[in-house]
Write a protein that binds this DNA or RNA. Structure first.
Length: 306
RNA sequence: GCCGAGGUAGCUCAGUGGUAGAGCGCGGCCCUGAAAAGGCCGGCGUGGGGGGUCCGAUUCCCUCCCUCGGCA
């Protein structure tokens, strides 16, 4: 019999963390975070990591374990997550993945090509070329070496053009070919994926309310600290709240404008997350009202599983 | 009450006698080693109400309503 693995996802601020702990208790699970920002240490408030109250109840993994000065990525996440799955199952418990980073989920569920193909210097060089000669220059090159990839990538999507060229230069193989080589965990395990969903207006409201809480918990001090210690990594620096507050620190606009931008960017992010989730037909949707208690939601999911 | 300005998209506004745009917002989509990133697409509208002129009005005229500023 296949071991069970549960995913609990949903847009940011939907209330995943609270529900997850209730669910974990019912199914004897340990939680593995699936969040590209909560993985960082020193960003507890800005990334809305589950706090000690929840972490005392259930063991959480892959949470606050990477220094914010370091780069991290989907492949590294996959390696870490696979290890955690084994460890937790060995203990006789169920792995419960919780988080909203679609790419990390996808790379775990469906795999990623496993060729070491990353070269920061090469990448830097490609970006410089894109700036000097325009991204269409790189796109032309991609059309020649990997027409299949070029067909899928928009000429303005510099990031993916650079990535495709980077892979080709390192491996000599087109990324479009490598990308077909992926193997996920869905064959090996009995995977169920639940996604919390809430009316858009209510979600936007929750995002705004959560932001107030973040300020009360010391958001400003935390983000200031991020700038004062080691250099902030590129990935960590992309967390919503950091660039917005930095503009305020530098006097480009006032605090209320910084808040407005944070809320807007978070709402846009939530929209993109939902687009990603909608595409995955394996997902089982859990519609929640605004006032439903986490325990009640957890119970509904529990019923689906058992 | 009088004088002036104005009522066009969710907001701020542009424009035209041939049924309307822009920015922001909002919505949809793409995504394989930076993913809270990066990229693409969409106008989402009884043009304040009513009447008139005209082949035809959002545009011109009349009237009513509302908002803002000034005078009382």
């Amino acid at each position: 019999m296949k071991e069970k693995i549960i995913f609990l996802t949903g847009p940011t601020a939907a209330g995943k963390s609270e529900v997850a702990v209730r669910l974990a208790r019912k199914i004897n699970a340990e939680i593995i975070s699936c969040d590209s920002m909560q993985i960082y240490k020193g960003m507890e408030v800005v990334s809305s990591q589950p706090g000690t109250r929840l972490r005392k109840i259930i063991t959480h993994h892959l949470l606050g374990i990477v220094p914010f000065s370091k780069e991290y990525n989907a492949a590294a996440y996959r390696r870490g997550a696979l290890k955690k799955i084994e460890q937790i199952i060995k203990k006789g418990k169920t792995p419960l993945f919780v988080g909203g980073t679609g790419l990390y989920m996808s790379v775990l569920l469906d795999g990623i090509f496993r060729v070491k193909a990353q070269d920061p210097l090469l990448r830097q060089r490609l970006y410089r070329q894109a700036e000097d000669s325009g991204s269409s220059f790189l796109y032309e090159r991609l059309l020649k070496v990997d027409p299949a990839a070029a067909a899928k990538i928009h000429p303005n999507d510099t990031r993916r053009i650079v990535r495709a060229l980077e892979v080709f230069e390192i491996t000599g193989k087109p990324i479009s070919l490598l990308q077909k080589q992926r193997k996920g965990i869905t064959d090996k395990y009995d995977v169920r994926i639940f996604c919390l969903n809430i009316e858009r207006d209510k979600l936007h409201q929750r995002i705004a309310e959560r932001l107030d809480g973040m300020f009360k918990r010391g958001l400003i001090a935390e983000v200031k600290r991020l700038f004062s210690r080691q250099r902030l990594g590129k990935t960590a620096a992309a967390a919503i709240g950091i660039k917005e507050l930095n503009g305020y620190f530098k006097g480009a606009y006032d605090l209320s404008e910084a808040k407005r931008r944070m809320i807007r960017n978070t709402c846009l992010y939530a929209k993109r997350q939902l687009t990603w989730f909608r595409k995955d037909k394996r997902i089982e949707w859990i519609e929640i009202g605004g006032s439903e208690k986490p325990t009640a939601i957890a119970n509904r999911i529990f019923k689906e599983i058992s």
